[in-house]
Every structure is written in structure tokens, then in C-alpha cells.
Simulated scan of single mutants.
Amino acid sequence: MKDNTFKIIAGNLKGRKFNFPDAEGLRPTLGKTRETLFNWLQFDIADKTIIEPYAGSGALSLEAISRGAKKVCLIEKNRKVFKNLELNFKLLSNSQYQLNNTDSVIFLDKQNIKPFDLVFLDPPFNQNLIPMTLELLSQKNYLHYESQIYIESEFEITPILLENHLEYDCKIRKQKKSGNVHYCLISLVAI
């Protein structure tokens, strides 16, 4: 039987289990990968604001809140998956999160007022969403010069891809592969 749960690794929600529904393209970030990511971010998570355009299970945002992030903004267009996010986030204070049931591209195409410190970018694979999403994030004021972007993808993220789709200088700080999933952490660099 399939186990549609994930467990929070550390912080004030440590050990708590959350559910997620069966949905096409939904693959929560594995615990080992989440642990690696949050080791990379260990001093860069407290009091930060985060946007997760393709929220899915919400595992990354829940882990971030557990570890002291100030606020997360999640976007999920699948209604069933969104309803599950509402259930999972109910135990948190409303001031810690914002849930949006809409298409990420439509949401990100609106000019943003206050940039985010961190982006969790883990779109469905094989839909070529990363280039367009990076362009919208940088063109519509979702980033600032100290923002970081975490990307999970079916291909290796290269400096050329970033240069072609981000309006910021940036560098790939960390990069790994687990099975067929590539993941990396990018820092924007002030010129």
C-alpha cells in the first residue's frame, strides 16, 4: 500500500506527519533531499519570507515554518491538492502562511510589492516551467539581491540557463543529484 505521508525533520513541528493526495506530477521532496537542502540553508531560514510557486504537498514550506521561517506563500492550481494543503496548514497561525489556489504562471505574472528571501521552485517535470518561472520571478519583483532560489528538476541547472532567464547575476552554491532528480541552491549576487 502506498504511503502518502511525509514527516517534518526538525524544528517545532519535528516528527509531525502530514498527508498528501494522489495527483499527477505530485512528488514531495524526499526526506533525504529535504535534509540536505535545510543543511545548506541552516543559517538562512529563520525570519525569512518564502514563495513556493508549485507547492504540491507543501513539504518544503512546512519544513521551513518548522525551522523558523517568518512566512510562506504557496501557490497550487490543482484543487484537490490545494484542499489538502488547507488541511495541513490549519495547525499553523494564519500569519505564517498564504495559500493561493491558482495557476503559478498567472499568479507570478502580476507585479509583486515585497520581494521574497527564498524561492522553492519544484514544478512538475517535463513541462518546461523553470525558464518561464525564473523570468517572471525576476521581472515582477519577487526577488531581491540577497534572495536564494532552490530548484528541483529533471535536468541539471546550468549557469547559462540562469543567465538566460534571470535578470540578476547569480551563482550555483550547491548542486546534487538523487536518482533522476537534480537539485541546487542558487544565490543572487549584487553587482
Rank of each mutant, 00 (worst) to 15 (best):
C73G: 00
E24C: 01
I172K: 02
L143D: 10
S57H: 08
Q96S: 15
S104V: 03
L188Y: 04
S187V: 02
K48R: 14
R27A: 13
E86H: 02
L134E: 11
S93K: 14
L85P: 00
V105N: 08
I9T: 11
F18A: 10
L74N: 11
S66E: 09
G56N: 01
H182Y: 15
F18P: 09
C184R: 03
E152I: 02
H182R: 04
L30Y: 05
L91Q: 14
T33M: 14
P131A: 10
S66F: 08
K171T: 13
S95E: 15
Y54I: 03
A10T: 13
I50P: 09
E135W: 00
D47T: 03
F20V: 05
G58R: 04
K174A: 01
S95Y: 03
F116R: 09
L74K: 03
L188M: 01
V81Y: 12
K2H: 12
I113V: 13
K110I: 10
E163F: 09
A46G: 01
S57L: 07
L134P: 08
H165A: 09
G68A: 11
I8P: 05
E52T: 04
Y142A: 10
S104A: 15
N112Y: 01
G179Y: 03
D3L: 11
T33I: 15
A59E: 04
L87F: 07
E163D: 14
K171Y: 02
I160N: 13
K48P: 03
Q42D: 05
N88V: 02
E63D: 10
F82T: 05
S104T: 02
K71A: 05
E135H: 04
G31Y: 00
C170F: 07
I157P: 06
I172Q: 10
N112K: 12
I130K: 07
D22L: 11
K17M: 08
L129R: 06
S178Y: 02
L37M: 06
L121W: 04
S95P: 00
I113H: 13
F43C: 11
S178F: 03
A190V: 07
C73H: 13
D103S: 05
F155A: 13
K177P: 03
D22C: 00
E63N: 02
I9L: 12
L134N: 04
E163S: 14
L85M: 06
I51V: 15
F89L: 14
K77A: 08
G15S: 08
L162R: 06
G68W: 07
